[in-house]
């Protein structure tokens, strides 16, 4: 089975982020492999170890994205394509989906395409289904489990729905977006890291895909005009004491003060 994993590089969101003069300021300039993307890579590696096949990586972004591509190769992916864009271009889901669709149109040897269900920086969750629609592929989002049914040649997706988990069989080719609840992505070992340096990374430009680099940003459909801190909830009453007393006080407050009981 040929898996293509579209991965994203994101700022390290575990580090402090502040807003200064309307711009985001990151305490470190560390960039990492998006956690949802990492789960997609891991899932492909598990499935190809079991059923055979190949894991190819695709990523869009400036030169430094290569660092993140190497990480995925060190985890065990075989090869990668880097769609290189300008350093300062602010691209959104619709641009990513169009570039990826154009890539797959030129390279139609795909069978299963995996992405993260959203990315840790924007939390938008649009690119996967946009790409599926653009390519007219059947798809499932928010997968927490994935299996390959060899006899039926179908992908069996367990996805997190509103009132339970939905088990869906998808004809191949198909596209699936992965939750970080799917697995624990492996940490590359030294051997993997050494090997990753020899693995092929093809660099292409948006122009090669029919999208002039200098006009890419105009395709973006959303504009960020500023940032704000999360609205804060005011702390209420903090109660300490004996458990039985605490329980009585709480029920009294819920009944007579908050009036929700």
């Amino acid at each position: 089975m040929k898996f293509h994993i579209c991965i994203k590089q994101v700022p390290d969101i575990t580090a402090p982020i502040s807003i200064r003069n309307g711009e985001l300021v990151f305490e470190t300039d560390r960039v990492v492999l998006d956690a949802y993307s990492a789960s997609a890579v891991e899932e492909s590696l598990v499935l190809t170890e079991k059923h055979g096949g190949e894991t190819s990586i695709i990523s869009i972004g400036p030169d430094k994205v290569k660092e993140t591509i190497r990480k995925a190769l060190a985890m065990g992916a075989e090869k990668a394509t880097h769609i290189k864009t300008d350093e300062n271009a602010s691209l959104d889901s619709s641009v990513f989906a169009r570039l990826l669709a154009a890539y797959f149109e030129k390279n139609p040897d795909y069978e299963v395409i995996l992405l993260g269900k959203q990315a840790q920086d924007t939390d938008a969750g649009l690119t996967g289904s946009m790409l599926a629609e653009k390519m007219n592929l059947s798809y499932a989002t928010n997968a927490v489990g994935l299996e390959y049914d060899e006899s039926a040649n179908k992908m069996i997706v367990t996805r997190q729905g509103d009132a339970g988990q939905e088990v869906i069989a998808l004809q191949i080719p198909c596209l699936i977006t992965c939750s970080n609840d799917m697995n624990d992505p492996r940490i590359p070992n030294l051997r993997g890291i050494m090997q990753s340096k020899k693995k092929p990374v093809e660099e292409i430009s948006p122009d090669d895909l029919g999208y002039p680099s200098d006009k890419l940003q105009q395709l973006a459909s959303t504009e960020i005009t500023g940032y704000e801190p999360m609205p804060e909830r005011q702390p209420g009453k903090k109660l300490e004491g004996e458990p039985v007393e605490l329980a009585k006080q709480l029920v009294d407050l819920l009944q007579n003060e908050a009036k929700v009981l």
């Binding site: 840790q120 939390d123 938008a124 959303t222 504009e223 960020i224 940032y227 704000e228």
Partner: peptide, 15 residues
């Protein structure tokens, strides 16, 4: 207003 960066802050986003 959309929460971003794992809900550390909100982005004022326009279409």
């Amino acid at each position: 207003l959309r929460p971003i960066m794992a809900a550390k802050l909100m982005a004022r986003t326009k279409v």
